[in-house]
Design a binder for these strands. Structure first.
Lengths: 343, 343
DNA sequence: GCGAGTATCCAAAGCGGTTTGAAATGCCGA
DNA sequence: TCGGCATTTCAAACCGCTTTGGATACTCGC
């Protein structure tokens, strides 16, 4: 192991107290002494043992992320990696660690309880909120600062969250398609037990209602977001007696599958049919290399991670403040996948 | 906070020693007493403070994962999420935490040093090894148990790793295409500064050489693995005077792009052209829903995560044992994307 | 009935830091 | 010269757990 504070102190002929204070920037220590201590610490490659430190201070300087794995289909949320990358930046800038718990949703409650009771984290980030997510009241009861990436419809008591305006985003996208003359518009959505997906559907319905169009259940597909799902949904939609001329896709990967179904049917994107996709700006799934392929509602999930982490750290520093919330708007960026209705 | 061991002991009228021993399964405690302690602990919802525990034992019961972000292109490795999910299962089964450090590759060395010096982890998992990866000698010098997901060509001293047999896998895939009568075979590979990509190319070249075919540099593309890259590569390859009749793709997402280029050109997969892809079995990127779409070399990265984590934990328990290594073979699974050469 | 052996429990000393309360030192004005 | 006040340092307690080295009581063989 490395040098301990006590050893460092004795080689300097000082008490541990003084050394600790010198290194932690307390005022009651002579400037020359402080310099001497700092030099010696660097020379000895001294790093305070984080476990001892956190035991003494009562803080762990770590944030917990719990990644739920649905036991039924065992899907790992693909946006998770980029969100983590963003959050990680903020944490390391602030000198915090990130501890990850991957738990099947059946054991979620126990996982949260453990994390808090064992004192291994100062705060918790909640991923992938569902409707009426029970984790939110649980964490509130546990009295630990936490932050939700997304929101949970049906949870009334206030809590801290960061979300994108999914409803407005999909409403605008739908309106845009309506403006282009499309009236049969399909929604190829994520699992609507997830809060974000439900809000997107509401936005879609808002726009249809505004335009006086009765929503057609046959045009609305929902499932775990994968390429094969996009393809299947696309094929099924095209097989309808009165097929849609425009499509909304909830993620880039779904859009890949959807595009395949459309082009398989000999349709050209942006001419024969229109597609708008939600683009999370995942680093490994760019929307084209320089010009956007798809018209898309864009919002960087990595940036969301950065911001959410900062907000959580603020909550950790001052747990008594009222909940922090941030609703980010998306950008509707024009690509080559939309055009006016020609059917 | 929760109950402390001392409090629990005093309510039970026992010493902390006995309570600690009762809960940790030491033999020198009366069976009845142990039962009493365990009941009381459960009733009081007692969880040992992990920081105190690890300070006392000298172990942190945590494993560090360092996620490198290349500062140049800021890509987060997409397989990371599934690997983490697998590793997380093993860790939580063993009662270990996982701490994540997301670091730009410029600060990597400092990140590893910190993690070790501050004693926040008992072992380290290394992701995405490059050729002659400098992290391996560094970790060896730091004297911390570590495990590499993949290997690093050019590092001669032994170290622990888990890898799939990329070379053999791509060699077999190439041989299979050769057997189908293809002679112009393209390789759409990942970044060849990454060790896995380099090995895949070697396997491809092995098979060509065996067949007496001179490799054509124009048939080999390499870049960060994205859908647009697959598409670009595919289009460029088809534009050749003597285009390939078969393609190897290094990841599912690249294959999506490749397929788009091929079908855009009016070619049918499995009839006009053949494609074999490497399938990491990512949960959110399945190779078809029930039957495989692509002929693929398959290996579950999640399973790799599970196994790698177990091996690392074994190293942590007994750091003096020789390095552990595991080379996993892939399965060549037939899908609809291959057929005999008809050009 | 007594010493050895065993089963069971405990007091106290760590682990490596932080922090409280007090002591030593130097400087000042009265 | 002396008390008062900063300034600077230190000894010791503490964070919550583990673990060493006894202590106590109880059994057993002779």
């Amino acid at each position: 192991m490395g040098v301990t504070l006590k050893e460092l102190a004795s080689t300097l002929g000082l008490s541990p107290t003084t050394v600790s204070r010198a290194l932690n920037g307390y005022p009651e220590v002579n400037a020359r002494t402080r310099q001497r201590v700092q030099d010696a610490a660097r020379a000895a490659n001294y790093h305070p043992n984080i476990r001892a430190k956190s035991l003494a201070t009562g803080q762990s300087r770590a944030i917990g992320h719990v990644i739920p794995i649905s036991t039924s289909h065992e899907i790992v949320n693909p946006i998770f990696a980029d969100f983590i990358a963003g959050a990680g930046e903020s944490y390391s800038r602030a000198g915090y660690d990130m501890v990850l718990s991957v738990v099947p949703d059946a054991e979620e409650e126990a996982a949260y309880r453990n994390l808090v009771a064992r004192g291994s984290v100062d705060g918790i980030m909640v991923h992938g909120p569902r409707l009426q997510d029970s984790r939110i009241p649980l964490l509130r009861d546990l009295g630990v600062p936490f932050m939700v990436h997304g929101r949970s419809s049906g949870v009334s008591a206030p809590y801290s969250w960061l979300d994108i305006n999914n409803r407005r985003s999909f409403r605008r996208a739908t309106e845009f398609l309506l403006d282009l003359g499309h009236t049969r518009i399909a929604l190829v959505n994520g699992l609507e037990t997830m809060d974000f997906a439900m809000r997107r559907r509401l936005g879609y319905l808002d726009a249809l209602q505004e335009a006086g169009i009765t929503p057609d259940p046959a045009l609305m597909h929902t499932a775990e977001m994968t390429e094969p799902f996009g393809h299947d949904a696309g094929r099924a939609l095209l097989a309808l007696a009165d097929p849609p001329s425009a499509f909304l896709a909830s993620s880039m990967i779904v859009a890949y599958g959807l595009r395949r179904a459309l082009t398989d049917a000999g349709l050209r994107l942006g001419r024969d049919v229109s597609v708008i996709v939600h683009d999370d700006d995942l680093s490994y799934m760019p929307n084209g290399l320089d010009v956007p392929q798809f018209t898309a509602t864009c919002s960087s999930v990595r940036e969301a991670g950065r911001k959410a982490a900062e907000m959580l750290l603020a909550l950790v520093r001052d747990p008594d403040q009222p909940p922090l919330t941030l609703l980010m708007e998306t950008q509707l960026v024009l690509g080559d996948s939309t055009g006016r209705n020609r059917t």
